[in-house]
Computed example of a mutant assay.
Amino acid sequence: MTSLLPQKDLMGGGSGGGGSTGGTYTFSSRPRVLRGHKKYRGEEAPAAEETTHYGNIMYDRRVVRGSTYSQQIFPLSAHADPVEYQQQQEAQRRALAKKRARDHARPRTPEPVEGRKHIDVQTEIYLEEITDRIEEIDVSCQTDAFLDRPPTPLFIPAKSGADVATQIEEGELFDFDIEVKPMLEVLVGKTIEQALLEVMEEEELANLRAQQYEFEELRNVELAEVQRLEERERRLREEKERRKQQQKEVLLKEKETAEKVAARAFAQQYLADLIPSVFSNLRDSGYFYDLIERDIETGFIPWLMSEVERTLEKSILGRIVLDQLIREVVENRLQSFHQVRSEDTSN
């Protein structure tokens, strides 16, 4: 394998921008002085060109995004962030408005006469330190002194001569069969070592799994024994609580039975003299009666009275009809008598 390398590329490239014909292309820019900055003492600052502001391109006024009808142009010298710039402007407007309102609301004194002036005087009872003055601190920064500018050379000789190249034959710099042996030894050794480590790790993991299995079996046995003892203790506790509850219920029933017997005896003793008087009062009030007598009073007597009333109504109705007939007969006879009498008188 033969390669031709240009001499200037092996030495780090030329001083200008470009490359040699037939070689690898390289480029390097010449160093430049910052704008508006003097490098040497006694040198005039270069002319100030257009100021370049570095910031987020999303807030660059030359980039148009969205609608162009209502564009808000923010000055680049104020702030790179328009939201923060708006907040600052709003805060300044609020501060000015508060200051104007405070000055307007502050009571004012008349203007001083000619030859006099107003001064601030503290009229409080106790002297107080005035802390309205803002503390000021002077801070300075030491910078490096300007360097002396080196003298400009009077003559710069032109470049002469030809570029030099080096011929490299195959096998002069690198022999693969020889150079690969140490790397192969290292790779094979590392591979074998890693394989042995993995085998040992697998054996160790198998031993750990066996120990873990034995430990889990022992723990399961212990847990089963603990659960059995806890279940036995629970059964004994529940049996004890059940016996206590049964005993409480027996005592409560005995107490209730004794109270019932005592109440029954007291009631019998209290009602011994009360029953005769109560029955006599109830009998006098009509709560105790003879069934046959009550049946006659509620059933037979009302029926008998209704039948008697019906019979009397029939007899009265017959009398009324008879009286009406008699009246009609009498009226007819009286009318016929008057008629006969009138005929007699006319004759």
Rank of each mutant, 00 (worst) to 15 (best):
L10T: 02
G16Q: 11
G23M: 07
T26L: 15
S29Y: 10
P31I: 12
P31E: 11
R32S: 11
V33P: 10
H37E: 09
A45H: 04
P46W: 00
T52G: 10
Y54T: 15
R62F: 08
V63R: 09
F74E: 02
Q86R: 11
L96Q: 10
R100S: 00
H104Q: 12
P112Q: 03
G115W: 02
V121I: 10
V121P: 00
Q122M: 00
T131L: 00
L147V: 14
P150M: 03
F155G: 01
K159F: 03
Q167T: 13
I168K: 03
E172H: 10
L173T: 14
E179D: 12
P182M: 04
I192D: 06
I192R: 11
A195N: 04
E198V: 09
E198Y: 08
M200W: 02
A210T: 05
R219Q: 11
V226F: 13
E230D: 10
E254M: 03
A265K: 12
Y270C: 04
L274G: 02
V278L: 12
R283I: 09
S285V: 01
G286D: 00
L291W: 01
E297I: 15
F300G: 05
F300I: 13
W303P: 02
L304P: 01
L312H: 08
E313N: 12
S315C: 08
L325P: 03
I326E: 02
E331G: 02
R333V: 06
D344T: 01
